[in-house]
Design a protein around this nucleic acid. Sequence first.
DNA 1: AATGAATGAGCCTTCATTCAT
DNA 2: TATGAATGAAGGCTCATTCAT
Lengths: 199, 199, 199, 199
Amino acid sequence: MKNTVREPQQERSIEKKNKIIKAGYELFTEVGYYGTNTVEIAKRAGVSTGIVYGYFADKRDILICVLKIYIENVSAPLFDIIRSKHGNVVLSDLAHEILDKTIELHEQYAKLHNTLHSLAATDEAVNAEFIKLENSITMQMSEQLSALGVTVENMTEKVHLAMNLVQSFAHEYVFDSHSYINYSKMKETVCDILVSLFN
Amino acid sequence: MKNTVREPQQERSIEKKNKIIKAGYELFTEVGYYGTNTVEIAKRAGVSTGIVYGYFADKRDILICVLKIYIENVSAPLFDIIRSKHGNVVLSDLAHEILDKTIELHEQYAKLHNTLHSLAATDEAVNAEFIKLENSITMQMSEQLSALGVTVENMTEKVHLAMNLVQSFAHEYVFDSHSYINYSKMKETVCDILVSLFN
Amino acid sequence: MKNTVREPQQERSIEKKNKIIKAGYELFTEVGYYGTNTVEIAKRAGVSTGIVYGYFADKRDILICVLKIYIENVSAPLFDIIRSKHGNVVLSDLAHEILDKTIELHEQYAKLHNTLHSLAATDEAVNAEFIKLENSITMQMSEQLSALGVTVENMTEKVHLAMNLVQSFAHEYVFDSHSYINYSKMKETVCDILVSLFN
Amino acid sequence: MKNTVREPQQERSIEKKNKIIKAGYELFTEVGYYGTNTVEIAKRAGVSTGIVYGYFADKRDILICVLKIYIENVSAPLFDIIRSKHGNVVLSDLAHEILDKTIELHEQYAKLHNTLHSLAATDEAVNAEFIKLENSITMQMSEQLSALGVTVENMTEKVHLAMNLVQSFAHEYVFDSHSYINYSKMKETVCDILVSLFN
DNA sequence: AATGAATGAGCCTTCATTCAT
DNA sequence: TATGAATGAAGGCTCATTCAT
């Protein structure tokens, strides 16, 4: 006889559900998952506390939705770049393009990324979602590179490493944590590694 | 002028403090910081709730201690490797050695690492500790490579990237998250990148 | 931006808030502020622990509310007496009237008075409230006496002393602490002093 | 098999007990009874936590001792004044002398007085001690006045009221709470009342 | 569907008192 | 006697979730 979560059909409802996700998204970004409470989410969303549980099973369920949207938001632009390439590609241009876009995305999502990623440690579903994200980026990237005539041994391994490197770098770049690092020099080094990986 | 934290001098006390840290360490590893409560830490340590606050200012203080020990534990073995090199080093051997040790450390500490790292997002002291760790590893590594006759442009940037790459790889390797990845091939690729960076 | 206290508008809510104040009032009277805990207040009020913090910021906030109500309750009847006098007043009648009312109020509120007054020593807000109370009684009394044609030097000083005397006496009278005292004789003496002060 | 409280015989012990009482006395004055904890008392007294319970049954027992000393300290000087009078006394001089001494005592003990007095509301023993104090002052004062040839009706009642008035005034005087009051004028008025009471 | 007041288990922390040494 | 580390019950407060309306 447990509360079942409504799957909103009407536009009004979908809108409301989205408002809650947006509020959760903002608050998780600002103060983290454990620093956010459901009353605050409802308030920010402009809905009542109770109705939150009409759309979501529990607080964690909101998190999962936020996570999915986050993943969509960060992966789509990268997929766009990958898919946009036809004919001859200059690898170094592609590397730069991906690097720049990743930095841009990081600037926007870094704090939320940290919050979400941290929960992967204790929440299997969150972890799975991140792995799926990496999977799909790696696979699409690998295929597209092949289609573009790039042929190297151990393609997926290299693509995966490449994406890891790009991610690490973007993180460093955005947070600018280490005073002794010249980040533009570092960026060039990253590009060089990327190019050399696929030549 | 409220209750101050005892700085234990006697062995018995130090032992007890360590038991609490160990309990915290284990529980933070198993169920995360927010999944752990102080009563549980005390129980696991075999002490009373009250005495925990004789050794630590608050729950977060335990976390900070666990963090420091974690950092000591993961950095010391790497520093040992770095310092042990003299005369001619074969870069690829060094790369392998570091890679292997990092994997080994990750196998031991990965879950705790995730938990701790996640708190960096909301706790400045935790964040600072991680940055300091990266700093010291990068600096020591850079100096030692120079001392060993390795001369490349943008040394610190390259060392930093190299360590990032090693970390990312070790994480992947330990969790073995992606079925399509051949991790031994990947490992060789990482080594190749490392070697090419410093040649 | 943490949980804010509801300002109850609906009757039901106001009623509930009042129940909590009443419970606090009773318990503070019976066992003092430090002898009362919030769970007990909630239980006595017939509400849950949590909702107490929906209406009050913290335990002390309940105390402040109880204090304000107490002050209203003890000052209003005195103000009524003061304001009711017109034309010629026989000072000794006024003295008796005030004395009798103060005794009556003391019979009702003495224990609470003690509890509240004791907190003035460590709580500035509580202290301020008591001083304000004395101020307003003294001022209104002084003005009214002047309006009634009573003219003496150092009016406010005398009124203040008079009120102190009345208070002390009422306290003694109600607690009947000293077996060797004949309280009705004492009462007459108080009246005589009061009359002589303003003649 | 409960801990019995030692009655210290040796000088060293008596000294230690006094140190604890002094520490309690100071801390109760500074931060009140509920703001003081036993560890702090022991620390301030320069003894161990445990030994406190060798000399006192519990925390309240320390309070009772502090109370007794307080009472001795505030009553002795008044008794000295009372006893010092022989032959013809000018009432107004006596009034002034008592008033001045009471103010002086208040300046020294007012905070502790508040703290102790507040506990009378919830602790019968404390209350009894205060009543006993008032008793003895009233009785001695009455007798001495009689011996000095002062003969009025309802002596004890008048003495009691007089002492109340003196107390109230000293409290006001020391805390100087009301800006509109001219305390030196008030003092004269108090003297006048006292003199008129016993003429 | 929606509201938001209400619930109550659970958390962190304190502190009077005890006890092994 | 003396120590001070240790105990553990209790307190104030929070918050995910429920429920009467």
